[in-house]
Computed example of a mutant assay.
Amino acid sequence: MKAVAAIALLLLLGSCGLGQREITACADPNNMPFSNEAGQGLENKLSEMIATDLGAKLNYVWWAQRRGYVRNTLNERKCDFWPGVASGLEMLATSRPYYRSTYVFVTRERDSLGGLTLDDPRLRKLKIGVQLVGDDANNTPPAHALSARGMVDNVHGYMLYGDYGRPNPPAAILDAVERGDVDVALVWGPLAGYFAPQSTIPLRLEPVTPWFADQQWPMQFDISVGVRKDDQKLLKEIDRILIRRSADVRKLVETYRVPIAAQ
């Protein structure tokens, strides 16, 4: 009878949901189309998919994606995974890619600036916007590519970090094209793909080419989910989910109008 009672107690505790697995995502609270505190971003939705498939409760650690992000979140064990990282990032173990995107030229359709390349002579006569991380070697690939071609005086920088006092600070570079502050902007594809349709004027998006002319600064990247290097169990679980739910992940990426780059 004691054994039966013990089994009944275990079943009761299980039915109460005690011991449910929990998993914590690292996320930026104000960085659409990737994530925000309202859970509206692509990475929010992917995190929900991962948690659901693991049968886990999803929690978040909100942290602005400044320098030191990985060190202060994932590697401090404050969270378990970070979706939306470049595949092969050295500080982390990364999953199989779930999309590959590219930097794009963003111009106003009325200006008829289609067919631009990094080596197009028209660029030297235009006001150009680029996304910046800082003023050192950690800058974005387009900033380096333009600098290597001697284009500096006609280039205007827009910080990826931006002013957190306003919503979606990285979108400021798209606003600059819309207002006419710059003629062309070189923007990470997912950001441009999401915000360009919200512009009050039609904008043209075209992949930055040649995408691999400067081998140190490619314009296309595979995007993965990152985990701590010592958490190979979770990495394998996430890989299995990305394979099993590949059609759903592809649909999710399409919903956010991410420009897909073919390898």
Rank of each mutant, 00 (worst) to 15 (best):
G162S: 08
M91Q: 14
Q263T: 11
E90Q: 14
R71A: 14
N44K: 09
A8R: 05
R204W: 00
A3C: 03
R257Q: 12
I223W: 13
M1Q: 11
S112E: 14
V249D: 08
G157T: 12
Q65R: 13
L186Q: 06
A192D: 07
K78N: 11
L18M: 13
R100F: 04
G41C: 05
V61T: 10
K236M: 11
D135I: 14
A262L: 15
M91R: 09
V184E: 05
I201K: 09
A172D: 14
R77H: 12
A176R: 06
P33G: 08
A5V: 12
S47L: 09
R71G: 03
G193P: 01
Q232R: 13
G134S: 15
I238L: 10
S147G: 03
G41D: 03
Q232S: 12
D222R: 11
R244F: 06
P167Y: 04
N36H: 01
R100V: 14
I238G: 03
V130G: 06
G180W: 06
L132F: 02
P33N: 06
P197G: 02
G157F: 08
P97R: 06
I260R: 05
R179N: 10
A185L: 11
P218K: 11
M219V: 08
R166A: 10
S95Q: 12
D163S: 02
L132N: 07
D53E: 15
L160Q: 06
E109G: 00
L174M: 14
H156S: 12
Q131E: 13
R124K: 15
G14C: 10
L89G: 01
G84P: 09
I243F: 08
V61C: 03
L12V: 15
C26W: 09
G180Y: 11
